[in-house]
Amino acid sequence: MKTLLIGEYRDGKLLESTYELLGFADQLGAETALLLVGSESQLPEYSGTLYLADAATCGEYNPNLHKKLVLDAVQQENPDYIVFLHSSYGWDLAPRVAASLKAAQISEVIAASDGSFEVGCCNAKMRRSVKPATGKTVITIQAGAFPVLQPGGSPTIKKLTATGSGSLEFVGYEPAEKKDVDLAKAEIIVSAGRGIGKKDNVPVIRALATALGGELGASRPVVDAGWVEHSHQVGTTGQTVSPKLYVACGISGAIQHLAGMKKSDFILAINKDKDAPIGEVADVLVVADVMQFVPALTAKLAK
């Protein structure tokens, strides 16, 4: 079994998540080759074949060109699986490669066994097992689902080139907004989720954070709704945190949120739904109305 792993490079740097692809291939017990649109000055610690294209000429986000590069490597390597991270790079490029090959694509894989792949669905409450029906399969793996595997060594480089631009032009990056709170350094975080019901209830959650001597966090829907500022957002598109205590108030536990907080030392979740996926990572799940339980807990702590 052979895999072609598509690494990631952004803003002039090789991304660490590239090594999760090697962790996935290791679990499959598959041979590997790596492809990177990057730079010779940022080579992965890896001793196999590296198909390398130059990001300076091919661009960091140029999906039409990157698709051509991947298809070129697929032709040379003839892999069974073409594997991407399920990231803003991977979910954008993978379907283009799959469509060109008319290959099955299985998205956001969390486990693999026997030619079948496990994926989450229904907001991470349920799982599906999916079997490809094509000779080649395109896969994207969930961030953090597979271990980082950094084998060391230097790759054997095979250079790839492609030309043409298509009708899309990358203009540039905008850095993340300046943070008024650095959640990564907080020892205690109390986060508000959609389950708090309305913006007027945010002070109730903030009061618990204050009573515990911690910071206020929030899930994405709460930030999108404008209840809490983006700088407080925990998750893949916000901050990744690992405090000593994480209190999730009315947060159901979307994959993107869990990825940002599951490494916390101790997780207390309050949710009225006993089956909410946050229960999967919580040390303690309190099944209760968050707007009844949280004020009661705050009051008791203040005594």
């Binding site: 669905c121 991470a124 409450k125 349920m126 799982r127 599906r128 999916v130 079997k131 094509t134 309190v286």
Partner: peptide
């Protein structure tokens, strides 16, 4: 179709967590 779903099921419970009601 290029792929088939063979099973739909809840995640395996990891255990460890306490549920309080």
């Amino acid at each position: 179709p290029l792929a088939a779903t063979t099973s739909f099921h809840p995640p395996a419970k990891k255990g460890g967590g306490i549920v309080l009601e």
